[in-house]
Amino acid sequence: MNIPSKIQLFITLSIVTLTTIGCIPSDTNSHHAYITNQGANTVSVIDTTSNQVIKTISVGKAPVGVAVSDKLKRVYISNVESQDISVIDVSTHKVINTIKIKGSPVGLTVSPDSKTLYVADWFENRILAINTTDTNKIREQLVGDAPAGLVISPDNQWLYIANRDSNDIAVIDTATLTIQKRIAVGKHPFGLALSKTGELLVSVNVQEDTITLINTKTKQQHTIGVGYHPYCAVFSDDQKRLYVTNTQDDSISIIDVTTQKEIAQVDVGSTPEGISIDQENHHAYVANWGSNDVSVIDTQTNKLVTTIKTGDKSRAFGQFIIKR
């Protein structure tokens, strides 16, 4: 073999190798987790099949919240300090729109029909309802002090907002965008979780070190102690368990929903904040603000599977996993 053909072979082999590597992230069955990195002003995209970061996307300043729409193939990121929302196209991993907010966006959620993006505006004590097809169309409603976490009922009717400094949850009728009622919960609610049927609502009360379980039909409440300064919660796919991040204990609490008791604590990275569960592999993804990484927990064994390095001060507040 002469030298040029050796080079030729090398180039051919390299292309084959690169193509093969390039194929893994675009596996159509895999899901992607979008992790906001507050200090890096970026979003890390994790392929939940390979558990690798496949892309890092630059967004606005101090990104915190995430909402996804499988239908629109869009991911929404709230940037608190630049006061805007980055809209990411999941097929190209590019920011395709930036929505200016005259406030400080934190919590985000998309309605089940994907027509509306709801935004919690921390300092202006209001929520914004943004039309996802025309993002210039924005409605707003005053709610409570320092609104943070948002969840919406599966029938699209009720929007729940945790008002951190009013110590309550505002229940909004989405048709009229008016407050129907307020539910008093523990001190400083931040994250919210809602069961698949919409029957069980959970508020995570940061300064009380508790979570409040609320039956949305009977209005019955039950409070459960968790770790120090909890932030966020998520239901397991079978709805039998709750996973709660304890920011100041570097752990997650696992709650049995039926007995309403904590059954285990699992150590994760430092200062865990956002948590979502992948429905395909049943793994919980936990964003660690203090250690700049994501802990992956197998929800069937409740053991740590792996830790994925992300970016400076990972937060990922909201449901951050999207189907591909």
Binding site: Q38, G39, V64, V80, D145, A148, W289
Partner: peptide
């Protein structure tokens, strides 16, 4: 002991 901003520093 009341409210603080949404972006913690380290």
């Amino acid at each position: 002991a009341s409210a603080h901003g949404p972006t913690p520093q380290k």
